[in-house]
Amino acid sequence: MDINFELYKIFYYAAKHQSFSEAADKLFISQSAVSQAIKNLESKLGEQLFFRKKRKISLTREGELLFKHIEQAYNFIRSAESKFSEMKNLDAGEVRVGVSDTVCKYFLIPYLEKFNNNYPKIKIQVINRTSSQILELLNHGLVDFGIATLPVDDKNIEVKNFISVEDIFVACHKFSELKDRTVTLRELSEYPLLMLEKGSTTRRNIEEFLIKKGIDIAPEIELEDIDLLVEFAKIGLGVSCVLRESALEDIQHNQLFEIHTEYKLPLRKLGICTVKNVPLSRAASIMIDNLINK
């Protein structure tokens, strides 16, 4: 099917903004030209793409399907254009990074600061998501690379090892009977546990480890944010499983203490993830090299 790419471009803007007039403004063409282009595209595809009601438009089911693919293709094209503009001394361009807020806060910020100092004209966009959401962003071309908890079960994604991090159990003075001794995992499972939400890769890894030790847990509270787990532990809502770095300051100030268990939780590996066979921009490649060769 031979369809002029310009028609898809006009469709993309109309669908994104849910408006022919806004699409016209963005593309610097007339609204009638947008309307005619959409009619032309619908005729070539043999399907209606928009519901039209007075001045309002919305995507049909077929339109939503087309937009899903066109959006992905358009993002990859924008990425390619960005790569070309960066080839001259990195004096323009953007690096889009997908990373969890916790990893960004405790590990990534120094690298971002160094990169920004070395290449001040390169825009850095950080998108905070969970590991599974980061992989989705990668597959849709919305980030150049992501940092995710391993393992990654996606044949479309290439992974390079970044760092290993440690998760620990912490509690406040309310649970002082657990302090300064070795606690069995079974005993700990009888306390109110505060953990990351069930859908996260980190939570899944911890559960798999505990199941191998014959421990089945039923957390009292599940959250998406590790810093909130630290805060909840500080006010005595339970025993939190958190990233060591997130609790260090509170441990040093005696607001929390680390619970020493008979078996330490396995180190959690973080990987730098990219899409296979999709070339990286020079700026993204340099940032990844800085992370790997830290």
Rank of each mutant, 00 (worst) to 15 (best):
M1D: 08
M1W: 03
D2N: 15
D2R: 15
F5D: 12
E6F: 02
E6P: 02
F11R: 07
Y12N: 05
A15G: 08
K16C: 03
E22G: 05
I29N: 07
I29R: 09
S32L: 09
V34P: 01
S35W: 06
S43T: 15
L45Y: 04
G46R: 07
G46M: 05
Q48Y: 08
F50K: 14
R55K: 13
S58A: 14
L65H: 10
L65E: 11
L66R: 02
K68I: 08
N75P: 07
S79F: 08
S79M: 11
L90D: 10
L90W: 07
E94T: 15
E94C: 13
V95C: 03
G98L: 04
G98Q: 06
D101R: 07
K105Y: 04
N116L: 06
N118Q: 14
V126P: 07
I127H: 07
I134M: 00
L137K: 00
L138C: 00
L138D: 00
H140M: 07
G146L: 00
A148H: 00
A148E: 00
I163L: 09
I168H: 02
V170Q: 01
C172R: 07
D180A: 03
R186C: 04
L188D: 00
L196R: 00
K198E: 10
R204H: 10
I206T: 13
E224V: 13
E224R: 12
I226D: 15
L229V: 06
V230W: 01
E231L: 10
L237N: 14
S240P: 11
V242C: 01
V242A: 01
L243A: 06
R244Y: 13
A247I: 09
A247K: 10
E249N: 12
N254H: 12
N254L: 10
Q255T: 10
L256R: 13
L265E: 01
P266G: 05
L270H: 09
K276T: 03
N277Q: 09
S281P: 01
I288V: 09
I292P: 08
N293S: 12
K294Y: 04
